[in-house]
Design a protein around this nucleic acid. Structure first.
Lengths: 206, 206
DNA sequence: GTCTATATGGAGATAGAC
DNA sequence: GTCTATCTCCATATAGAC
């Protein structure tokens, strides 16, 4: 029962196991033996399907990129009110990341301290689309007669949202341990809180 | 010329090299040989000073924790206005992280997808103190007659600030590649933009 | 304290039978 | 396509001379 990209069923299991292990342990800490055991195949079988460990890793990365993009497309939904749009976008963003935690961790880890080449590729493949989505709705809200201040840099707000998402996904357990945090397992509540703050700030209306 | 904790000069060089490599490449991808070459000593010498690779890693981690805490203490400075305090705290936070990028990367990577044990230790050693600093100034600003809204959860704001810091440090190169981002190499400008948004939000004053 | 030399195991990868 | 058996190399770690 071959899968999507013409992969055999075993190859799929290998990719699944590899993705999970790479995401959780990191490339260097995962051995082919680990992956073989998790996937229920022999080591040699992995090299039959993939040229090298590096190639296997890159394939999991490619798939996670594709999945992220596909989910992003799926969530697209327009709404006239910019504030509503921002909230809906950010909720989607967190939901997508939560729906594919391993894939998200893989992408975040890949961007972690990456060099220019890898960072550029990542931005082109995933972060950039997300970022643009945010800056576009922000720019819309700032257009003439829009409801938002024009002295705020949309890039900063978009960065803040991506940072909020990234931290929530990659440091979940740290979040759980922080005193007074009761939203570590409720992405939607977290998302709403964050958007509330971004919209109106913490200062009282004069 | 022995250093602080009674370490010999070579042990210090080893720790320096290990910290840098672990921070940049990740534990699993760094070999004792790599560290030995970077430090200019033999492999055996490393095992003379440190019981194992794991122990060496843990020592770099301990030191980064200490350094982070020391820097945090050093920056402490009170100011009557909560908004000023928040800004000053967040600037300090980013400056501290920038001043010891390797140490910060080490701590962030350690928190990345950590299990409960490691996450708890990290929160007790570093993230917790930072988090508390933020929530305290927030709570102060929310006290009766304080200038801030009381319907905002201080924990969310603190999380947002730590997320903003973490992302800035660990995904710097991604930031550089994002379109319209001109603050990737200017922590203070980034910090000020972020605090401006947190204080007043992006919505126009009605 | 520092080194060279070495032990031992596991890594990534290949050969070849089925 | 899948396996067992094997190759080679490099990993962590130790022994022992200086």
């Amino acid at each position: 029962m071959p899968q999507a990209a013409g992969r055999t069923e075993a190859a799929e299991r290998i990719l699944e196991a590899a993705k999970h292990l790479f995401a959780r342990e990191g490339y260097g800490s995962v051995s082919i033996r680990d992956i073989a055991e998790a996937a229920g195949v022999s080591k040699a079988n992995i090299f039959h399907h993939f040229a090298s460990k590096e190639e296997l890793y890159l394939e999991t990365l490619r798939r996670s990129c594709e999945a992220a993009r596909a989910l992003l497309e799926a969530f697209r939904e327009e709404h006239p009110c910019p504030a509503h749009q921002l909230r809906s976008f950010f909720r989607d963003d967190l939901r997508q990341a939560s729906d594919d935690t391993d894939g998200s961790l893989l992408l975040i880890a890949e961007g972690f301290n990456a060099g220019p080449q890898r960072a550029r590729a990542l931005v082109e493949e995933v972060f950039g689309a997300d970022f643009r989505r945010f800056t576009q709705v922000l720019a819309a809200g700032q257009s003439s007669e829009g409801p938002w201040r024009t002295d705020i840099d949309p890039a900063v707000v978009a960065t803040l949202m991506i940072a909020a998402n990234t931290f929530f996904i990659s440091h979940r357990e740290v979040l759980r341990q922080l005193p007074g945090v009761d939203f570590a397992d409720d992405p939607e509540r977290y998302a709403d809180h964050v958007v509330d703050i971004l919209l109106d700030g913490i200062r009282k209306e004069a």
